[in-house]
Amino acid sequence: MLDEEITSCCRQLRLSRNLAEKAQTTDGESHQEYLYHLLGDELTYRNHSRTEKLVNSAGFYNIKTFENFRFDEITLPSDLSIESLESLDFIQERKNIIMYGGTGTGKTMLSTALGVTACRKGIPVRFFRTAALVNKLSEAKKAGHLSTFLKKLNKAEVIILDEYGYVPLDRTGAQLLFEIISDCYERKSIILNTNLEFSRWVNVLYDEQMTAAMLDRLLHHCHLLLFPGTSNRMRESSINDLYRSIAENNRQKDSVQEVKYDDHH
């Protein structure tokens, strides 16, 4: 048996153990056909491993896909179709996506689905809650490792910033976030999720000029997606039944009190 020898050769040639295992089961009518099938399987294995590594290292909190997403509950701009969005044309065009709407309306789900799809097409993605990214940037700067962190971040072709506007930023954090967005301008795509209207962004950054400059860079090449619906989490939660029950009980109590008041008067 040559198993160990083949495995050793694969290791020295930096080929996967998968090739050594497939060598025993691959068929071919000629030596060339056998080798072609074996190498083709190795390429498929490597591509799959690479895309799964991209998904695992992106930082998604959950893995989501377009399946079951309610596109009829959001408003797309006139120049963007569902098909174009799912095909990730905006990444090729170096355009940004801004998703605006209330909490729980599907922004994180859709941005994650876009990110996962990009990873599985071989496109590096990084996903952050905005406050968490700013904390990482601030900590790296204090520790003297900012350039190293930025070098890793720069490998991503898409940066997803979730929950922008939920937490006010200090001046250093705001400046660091601005630098990230400026560096991405016309070079890579940013997907930003927010429940904060543009006129109130200054309340997060506390600097009117920086806010204007950030908006200018984000919106210059951008698709704005609106999420006007109610919270999916609230709608799908059984706590709604509890709220309705409490409200109904209160209405009944109010009705009883009104009847008693009328009887006494």
Rank of each mutant, 00 (worst) to 15 (best):
D241H: 14
Y166P: 02
L205H: 05
C184K: 04
Q252T: 15
N232F: 15
L225P: 00
M214R: 02
N240E: 08
V204F: 06
T211Q: 05
L226Y: 11
V202N: 13
I239V: 14
A247Y: 11
A213L: 08
L226E: 09
Y166G: 02
V167I: 12
G229Q: 04
N249I: 10
D241R: 15
A213V: 08
R200T: 01
N195P: 03
L192V: 07
G165M: 02
D207L: 09
K253P: 07
L218D: 01
F198G: 02
V167P: 00
F178Y: 14
D170L: 05
K188P: 09
C184M: 13
E236I: 02
H221Q: 13
V167Q: 07
H221V: 03
V167W: 03
L192N: 00
H221A: 13
S231P: 06
R244C: 08
K253F: 05
A174P: 02
S238I: 12
Y185W: 09
N195I: 05
L196H: 04
D170F: 07
G173L: 02
V204R: 01
L192H: 00
R171G: 00
G165Y: 00
G229C: 05
K188T: 03
Q252H: 14
T194Q: 00
D183H: 14
P228V: 08
D183F: 11
S237N: 14
A212N: 14
F178Q: 10
L224M: 15
L169H: 01
N232M: 12
K188Y: 07
R217Q: 11
T194C: 06
H223I: 07
I190Y: 04
I190A: 04
M214V: 15
Q252M: 15
F227Y: 12
E236T: 07
L218E: 00
R233Y: 06
F178H: 13
E179W: 03
L225M: 12
L218H: 05
T194R: 02
L225Y: 02
L205I: 13
R217P: 08
L205S: 03
Q175M: 13
N193T: 06
K188N: 08
S189F: 08
R171I: 04
Q209K: 14
S237P: 09
S245K: 15
N240A: 08
T172M: 10
D170Q: 04
L177S: 02
W201F: 05
N193I: 04
E197A: 10
F227W: 04
C184E: 02
M214H: 03
E248P: 03
H221P: 01
Q252E: 15
D170A: 05
S199T: 11
H223V: 09
I190D: 01
S238Q: 11
S199Q: 15
E236C: 06
L205P: 02
E179M: 12
G173T: 04
S182V: 05
Y185F: 15
V167G: 00
R244G: 00
I180K: 04
Q209V: 14
L242C: 07
L215V: 09
G173Q: 01
H221E: 06
L176Y: 03
N240P: 00
